[in-house]
Design a binder for these strands. Sequence first.
DNA 1: TCCATGACTCCGC
DNA 2: CGCGGAGCCATGG
Length: 120
Amino acid sequence: MSGFRDRVYAAVRAIPPGRVASYGDVAAAVGSPRAARQVGWALAALSEGGLDPQGRSVPWQRVILTSGFIAFRGDPVRGPLQRALLEAEGVAFRGDAVPMGRFRWQPQADVLHDLLHELE
DNA sequence: TCCATGACTCCGC
DNA sequence: CGCGGAGCCATGG
């Protein structure tokens, strides 16, 4: 049995370095297109080092708001950290936002199929 | 089972 | 373009 969170973590790991996805994109990828807020909840449950319950690393920094802004604007620690991690892998910012048109990850159906299949 | 919570989104104004 | 409010639904008490 795989829970919602496990599917979220698997989908986020499928986002390539240098690309980003919105919370809604991830929600849609795991089959619950209207559960964007729950994706945030799932990521909030990750350990401080971005590890899931099984100790696997989850690139949480690649998930941002659909507007291109990071969800931690205002947070003195995580905000700058998330931006730094993204810039380190090649994601450019225009002002405080990521140009979604250039960096948004668009999952392919077959990739998602394999992704969810491996969790059954 | 009901209720509150929240790393979201969309729509008006 | 900013803000407020409503809708959304997985979790945990």
